[in-house]
């Protein structure tokens, strides 16, 4: 119990430290990039006087560690991420949270769908081990995973939208509308193979366990053995490994899908902000994204501790 709570406390303490190191590295990189902040903020006024005024206004004449300290204390004390270059009259959180919400809804949909299709498929493949169904299923989904999103999306748009006119070719009008169809398919299809493969491996492992042999020996039908005994044990490890993996791939896949389909989500916004050299916005997104990712992983660990008594008893460690 001690090791476990220690593990969680260490992770929690580690989060601020991670954010501190990441933020300083990022801050330094952005102050180093093309189009230094001074010439960006001064806009059309390109003389020394304007540069000086801008330097003073934004504290850019200070050494970098002092700039960093001011920037950081503004975030911690006032929740102020500094001025955005593209949208000067709006606070950065007001700009990015609606965009994150759009991306989050699409990702959530795809995430749930990936698991609901992937886990049963993997279990089915494991049960059918030794027949042609197992390699055929896994092979089919490996094939789908190998199609780059960059190629899949234009093909989907061509058929579903341009040829058959079933769904709009892009944009986003809400969670339960036709505009969700293409992004959901494009995000779900590549992920299924990964989840199905994990489910297959962990089901195969669970099928060798003693209690499964006992269940069979009791004369239970194969269906009951699988659904009542094997699945309970095999689904848990999938959750741990797959959620982390899937979160990352969803975020990365979302960027290309949002660019290709013109969805006003956070991935596309990162891309636009990099193009516009709006570094305060990118810093804010990376900081919030990092925090969310670490917290999500911690939440998964906590969830597992609640679900699996063996971890609680210290018989099994967290990764």
């Amino acid at each position: 119990m001690d090791g476990l709570s220690g593990h969680i406390i260490r992770r929690l303490l580690f989060l601020p430290l991670t954010l501190l190191i990441v933020s300083f590295a990022m801050f330094y990189i952005t102050r180093w990039g093309p189009g230094d902040p001074i010439s960006i903020y001064s806009g059309q006024y390109r003389d020394e006087e304007a540069f000086d005024r801008v330097r003073e206004q934004y504290g850019l004449d200070l050494p970098i560690y002092q700039q960093y300290r001011i920037w950081l204390s503004d975030i911690v004390l006032h929740g102020d991420f500094g001025p955005s270059f593209q949208y000067r009259d709006r606070d950065i959180p007001d700009i990015i949270f609606p965009k994150m919400w759009v991306s989050f809804r699409i990702a959530l949909f795809a995430f749930i769908l990936t698991f609901f299709i992937g886990i049963p498929l993997g279990i089915y493949a494991a049960v059918k081990r030794g027949s042609w169904i197992d390699p055929a299923l896994i092979g089919t989904f490996l094939f789908f995973r190998s199609i780059p999103v960059l190629v899949l999306v234009p093909i989907l748009v061509l058929f579903l939208s341009d040829r058959w006119g079933l769904v709009p070719p892009g944009g986003f009008d809400g969670m339960f509308t036709a505009s969700m169809v293409i992004p959901t398919i494009a995000l779900t299809v590549p992920g299924i193979a990964g989840v199905a493969r994990l489910a297959r491996t962990s089901t195969l492992l669970a099928m060798d366990d003693d209690f499964v042999r006992t269940a069979r020996a009791k004369g239970l039908s194969e269906y009951v053995v699988i659904t009542r005994h094997v699945v309970r044990v095999s689904v848990l490890p999938i959750m741990t490994t797959a959620i982390g993996l899937d979160l990352v791939s969803l975020i990365e896949g979302a960027l290309f899908i949002e660019i290709l389909l013109g969805i006003p989500g956070i991935g596309r916004f990162v891309f636009e902000s990099v193009g516009a050299q709006d570094y305060n916005v990118i810093l804010a997104i990376v900081m919030i994204g990092t925090a969310a990712f670490v917290i999500a992983n911690l939440a998964v660990d906590l969830m597992l501790i609640v679900i699996d008594p063996r971890i609680r008893a210290g018989q099994r460690g967290l990764n």
Partner: peptide
């Protein structure tokens, strides 16, 4: 391992874009 943990906690693709964009001119 802590360095690795920090690197893997970063949103990969946005970071890649940012680093390539900022480092390239230099």
């Amino acid at each position: 391992m802590r360095t690795g943990e920090i690197l893997s906690a970063l949103p990969g693709l946005p970071m890649l874009i940012l680093i390539t964009v900022t480092l390239r001119p230099r």
